[in-house]
Amino acid sequence: MVKFRLERVSAPLWFRPLIPLIALLVTFLLTTLLVLWAGADPLKVYYYFLIAPLSSRVALIEVLVKSTPLLLTGASVAFAFSAGYWNIGAEGQLYAGAMAGAWLGMFLGGVSPVAGIPLMMAGGFLAGAVWAFGPAILKTRLNVDEVVTTLLLNSVILFLVSYLLNGPWRSPVSMWPQSPEIAQGAHYFRLLPRARLHFGFVVGLAVIVIEWFVLQHTPLGLRMRAVGLGKKAAQFAGLNVNRTMLVAALISGGIAGLAGVGEVAGIHFHLIESISDGLGYSGIIIATLGGLHPFGVGLAAFFIGLIDTGAQSLSRALGVPVYLGTVVQAILLLVTLSLFVLQNYRLRRA
C-alpha cells in the first residue's frame, strides 16, 4: 500500500491568480450531481450561468446593474478586512445608507441633481459610517468581538426599517410598506437609454479605483495593511493599531452606505424592506474571492452579478429553482476558501 503524508509548503506565487479558475472548475464538478438531481442538463445549466447573460445587450446590462451594489459591498468588506477588522455588517450599513437616501430624497423637491446627487451620496456614506461606529468603538476601546456586534446590528436595522415603513415613513399612496418616492433631483441619472443601468455603477468603479489607490499608495493604506497582516509588528513599529482599525471600519461602513443610496436613488426610488436581500453578505464572498485586492473585488463582483443574473434566466429557461444559483455561490465560496488554505500543503509519498 502506498502511504502519503501531508507537508506544509508555501504555494508558488504564480499559483495564487489561478485559484479562482480552479475553484470554478471544482465547483462545477461538485454541483453537477445537484443539477442532475434538479432534472437539468449540466452543460446547459453552465451555459445559462456563464454564457447566456453575456450574449445579449439586455442581459449584459442586467449583469452590470446587479454588479453595481456588489462592487460597493465587496469594496466595503475588503477595505475593513485589509485592516484586520472583520466587518460582517455591510448588510446593515447598506440599509443605513438606504434609509438616509430615502429620508434625504423626501426633502430634495426642486433641487437640481447637481446638488441632489452629491448630497444623497454624502448622506448615505455618513449614515453607513455612523451605523459602523458602535461596533468599531467597542472593538477598539473594549476589544469586543466585531464579528458578533456587526452581525447582530444587521438584524437590528432590519427591524428599524420595518418599523419606519409600517409607521412614520409609510407611503400613503402605496399598498405595500414602502417610503414615499424620492424627489426627481435625488435620482441617479441613467447611463444608457432604455436600460436601468445608473450612475451608481460609475460610483462603484470609482470607489474600486480609489480604494486601490488608498491601499497601495497612501500612508493610511500601508498602515491598514500592516495592521491587518501583523498587528504586533505594526504596534512595534509605532503605528496606532486601534485608530487605524477605527478609520478602516468607518470608511468601510460608508462605502456600504453608498451601496444603499444607489439602490434607492438608481433602482427603486423609495425604500422597501427587501432592498438588499443579502447584498452585504455577498460582499463578504466577493471580498474573499477577490483576495481583498480592489481589482480582484471588481472582477468578483462582476462574476457574482453574472451568476445572479444567470440563475434567474436559468430558472426561467429550464424550470429549475432560482436557489440553484445561491447554492452554486455558496459552494464556490467554500471551495475558494479551502483552496486558500490547501494551497500551502502538499501530499508526499511517505
Binding site: R225, G230, A233
Partner: peptide, 18 residues
C-alpha cells in the same frame, strides 16, 4: 512578530516613519 511578513522589505523599512 516584529516585521510584517507579507509586506515587502521596502515597506517594512519605512513603517515606523511613514
Amino acid at each position: 512578530a516584529s516585521l510584517v511578513g507579507e509586506l515587502s522589505v521596502a515597506d517594512n523599512l519605512v513603517l515606523d516613519q511613514l
